[in-house]
C-alpha cells in the first residue's frame, strides 16, 4: 500500500493518492506513517526535479497532493512537511516586492531537502527578518526578489541583520531571476542564485560542507 501511495503521488494522480491515503487510514495505519510515505514521494519528485527530469508543475502538484492528503488524514494537524534537521532557514521576499512563486519553490525544495524552513511571506520588513533569525535561531537567511528594485531592499536587509549583531551568525543568500554575482556583491550577501538548484546547493555547502 505505501508503494501504491508513493507511486500515485509521483505519478501526479491526485484522486487516486487521496483515496489510497483514506483507505490506509481506515484500515488503521498511523496518520504520521501516511504523511511519512507522502514525504518519501516528495523526495523522489524533488530528486527528479534537481536532476532536470521533473519540472515545476510536478513539484507544485506534488505539494498540492500532499496538502490534500494531510488535510484528509490529519485534519487541523501540523504541516505536512516534517521539521528538518539539516539546519534552520528563514526565507522571504524583501520589502517592496510581492513576488512569491520563486520563493515558494525554494522554500518547498529546502523543506524536502531536510531543512526547517520558516517562510515569512512577501514584502517582508527588515525587522521581521531580524526577529525571525533570533526567534528561530536561524542558520541561513534567504532573501528573494524579482524586481531590480529589490536589490536595494536586499542590501538594507543585509545591513539590518548586521546592525542587529547577527551577521556572523547566519549565511545569507539572495535569489531571484535578475540576481547574479554583481547583485550578491552589491547586497553584501554570502551567496546568490537564480534558480532553485542554486539555493539547494548553497544551503548544502553551508550546512554540510557538500560541494
Amino acid at each position: 500500500m505505501p508503494e501504491a501511495l508513493i507511486d500515485a503521488i509521483v505519478g501526479m494522480r491526485m484522486d487516486e493518492a487521496v483515496t489510497l491515503a483514506k483507505r490506509m487510514l481506515d484500515s488503521g495505519t498511523d496518520p504520521l506513517a501516511i504523511i511519512a510515505d507522502s514525504s518519501k514521494a516528495m523526495e523522489v519528485i524533488g530528486r527528479r526535479f534537481a536532476e532536470g527530469e521533473a519540472f515545476l508543475p510536478e513539484l507544485i502538484m506534488g505539494g498540492e497532493i500532499m496538502k490534500s492528503i494531510s488535510e484528509e488524514v490529519m485534519p487541523g494537524g501540523a504541516g505536512a512537511v516534517p521539521e528538518g534537521s539539516r539546519g534552520t532557514i528563514v526565507i522571504g521576499t524583501v520589502h517592496g516586492d510581492i513576488h512569491d512563486i520563486g520563493k515558494d519553490i525554494v522554500a518547498l525544495m529546502l523543506g524536502i531537502e531536510g531543512y526547517a524552513v520558516h517562510d515569512l511571506g512577501i514584502d517582508v520588513p527588515v525587522e521581521d527578518f531580524v526577529a525571525a533569525i533570533k526567534e528561530r535561531d536561524a542558520d541561513i537567511v534567504g532573501l528573494s526578489g524579482l524586481l531590480t528594485l529589490a536589490f536595494d531592499a536586499m542590501r538594507s536587509t543585509v545591513d539590518g541583520i548586521a546592525a542587529a549583531g547577527l551577521r556572523d551568525k547566519v549565511k545569507i543568500m539572495v535569489g531571484g531571476a535578475p540576481v547574479d554575482e554583481s547583485v550578491r556583491a552589491y547586497t553584501g550577501a554570502d551567496g546568490w542564485g537564480n534558480n532553485v538548484g542554486h539555493a539547494v546547493k548553497l544551503a548544502a555547502e553551508w550546512t554540510d560542507g557538500d560541494a
Binding site: T148, F151, P178, V179, D180, S182, V183, A185, Y186
Partner: peptide, 9 residues
C-alpha cells in the same frame, strides 16, 4: 543585455 549588468556593472 542584463538589467543587473546595467545596474551594477
Amino acid at each position: 543585455v542584463s538589467s543587473s549588468l546595467l545596474a551594477t556593472g
